[in-house]
Every structure is written in C-alpha cells, then in structure tokens.
C-alpha cells in the first residue's frame, strides 16, 4: 500500500516536472523580452537537471546545471548585452503555414510511436560496462565510458571545444587594451571581498569534482565548468589576464587538454597497444592526468568564450 502510494506520488512528481519543462521551454521561446526568455531558458536548464536526477543520471545533472544552464546562460546574457536591442516585441515570426503544422504533428506521431514500440525492458550496454569495470582503471561507470571505453569520442569532443574557441577568436574583434576595460568597470569593494573568498572555494570544488570523478559522479567536464564559472566571476569583477600571460602561455593553456589527451592516447601505442589502450596498472593515473589537463583547459576555454575577445598582448599584438 505504502509502496504503491510512493509510486503514484513519484509519478505525479514526474508528470509535474515534465509539464514544467515543456512550459518553461515554450515561455522561453515565446517571451516578448529576450532577457526574460534567456532567464526562463536558464530556469529550464535547472529543472532539466532535476529531471536528470530523477532519471538516475547525476553526472548529466551536474553537467547540465553547470554547462547547459549556467555557462550557456551566461554566454546568452553577455551576447544579449552586445546586441543593439534586446526587445523583440512582438516576436518577429514567419507565418506558420498549415504545412508546418502537418509536419510537426506527423513527426510527433511518428517519433512517439517509434519510442513506444521499443521494448519496455532493455539492458543496453549496462552489463557489458559492469563486467569490464575492473579493467577500466576507475570505479565510476560514466567516467570509465567517457575516458576509457569511448575515450576517442571525448578526445574529438575536446577538439570541438578548442575549435569553438579558435572560431570565436578568428571572428572576434581584438580586445581593447586592458587598462581601458578596467577604467570602465567600477566594482564595489564588498563584491571584490566576496570574490576573493569565492575563488579559492570554487577552485577547491573543481579539484574535488575532478578527483571524485574516479569513483562517483563528477569528472573533468563538471570540474572544468566550475573552474570556468570562477573565471567568469573574475572577468565580471574586472580582472584581466596580465599582458605577458595573454600570448602563447594562454594558448598553451587552452590546447593543454586536447594535447595531453592526444599525447597519452598516442604514447600508449609505443608498446604495440592500440590507440588509447592504457596499460591496466597505470590506467587510473593516466585518466586522472588527462582529466586534470582537460579540466584546466575546459575552464579556461569556457571563460575565454564568455569574455568573447582575444586578450590583447599589450602594445605589440
């Protein structure tokens, strides 16, 4: 009886969560003020993180909250501030022809039908992953998949992140010199004091997330995004990279994650093993090494994407 009650209660909770998600998505798209739309999108991301928790995907929940909602939201807001106007009222729309509605309804029916026709129970690769966990060098299944079983995907994904940064830099106008920026910003001393307290804490959290990823939810992406959040805070408080660090030391920091991944992936081949085939004894350490470098680069890259400018290297650019 009690179990059934909980069951029903949880189902109601799920239903509520799902409806909230759909409403937030709709309001976010249709908001007259784009600022409001973005705030609603961030709220959508946070509710989605709850959905991931309900689906027993805590790693995804962390990544969603930090990257999906947090950093994407920050990127959207800073972009909005650079646009000529944030008002799009009423939202400029194409007239939606009947054909579009027919297409959407058909797609809904077809996709829904395909999903409902899947078997109610399916193991997927859960058992296969479980049986190989002992050979992966880590204890947390998601980390094992990300960094070992399907590490090659993750390597290419680091390349995608690097690509986004290179693209942003090749498109962005060069930054005004750093002193001009600082003059424009006046940050209250209280915020600065808070900032000084927060930064070490965030770095600590990032380090913890990185370390804990080996046996519990967490890992390089979640840690990297916390680091990025610290970077965003620093930028908001008017901190800028020193000129002498803004040249190749910065670029080295940005490629470090991808470079370390490639280096380790290729280095293990020396003994005749395959790409990314870590020797069992050192797998855990190698994964931690890759993740540490990746965390650093992810944090730096995301913060640089937020700043939206190539830091200038002083007078001689």
């Amino acid at each position: 009886m009690g179990a059934a009650m909980t069951e029903a209660g949880l189902f109601l909770l799920d239903l509520l969560l799902v409806l909230t998600l759909l409403c937030l998505a709709w309001w976010s798209l249709a908001a007259t003020d784009l600022f409001k739309g973005i705030v609603l999108f961030i709220a959508f991301g946070l509710v989605l993180a709850l959905a991931w928790v309900r689906l027993d995907a805590p790693d995804v929940a962390l990544a969603e909250a930090a990257i999906g909602a947090g950093l994407t939201g920050a990127l959207l807001l800073t972009t909005l501030s650079k646009l000529a106007s944030s008002i799009d009222n009423p939202p400029a729309k194409r007239s939606s022809p009947v054909l579009l509605w027919v297409l959407l309804v058909m797609l809904a029916a077809v996709l829904g039908y395909a999903i409902m026709s899947l078997p109610q129970q399916a193991q997927g690769l859960a058992d296969t992953v479980a049986s190989q966990m002992g050979n992966s060098g880590v204890e947390h299944p998601v980390t094992a998949v990300l960094l070992n079983f399907r590490g090659y995907d993750t390597l290419l994904e680091m390349a995608v992140l690097l690509l986004a940064l290179i693209a942003a830099w090749s498109l962005a106008p060069r930054a005004a010199t750093s002193c001009e920026m600082d003059e424009a910003l006046t940050v209250s001393p209280i915020v600065l004091a808070l900032f000084r307290m927060l930064i070490p804490l965030m770095i600590l959290v990032a380090a913890y997330l990185l370390w804990v990823g080996a046996h519990a939810p967490g890992g390089a992406f979640q840690a990297g995004s916390v680091l990025a959040a610290a970077g965003v805070l620093a930028l908001l408080c008017g901190k800028r990279l020193e000129g002498r660090l803004a040249g190749w030391p910065l670029r080295l920091g940005l490629v470090l994650g991808t470079a370390m991944f490639v280096a380790v992936a290729a280095a293990v081949m020396v003994g005749g093993a395959h790409l990314l085939q870590y020797p069992l004894a050192s797998a855990g350490k190698l994964i931690l090494l890759i993740e540490a470098a990746a965390t650093f680069s992810i944090g730096l890259t995301l913060a640089m994407l937020f700043s939206g400018q190539r830091p200038s290297r002083g007078p001689a650019s």
Partner: peptide, 8 residues
C-alpha cells in the same frame, strides 16, 4: 580504439 572492440 582502446582495444575494447564493439559493442563497448
């Protein structure tokens, strides 16, 4: 890649 082989 990684010596695991499909499907893992």
């Amino acid at each position: 890649v990684g010596g695991w082989g499909a499907p893992l």
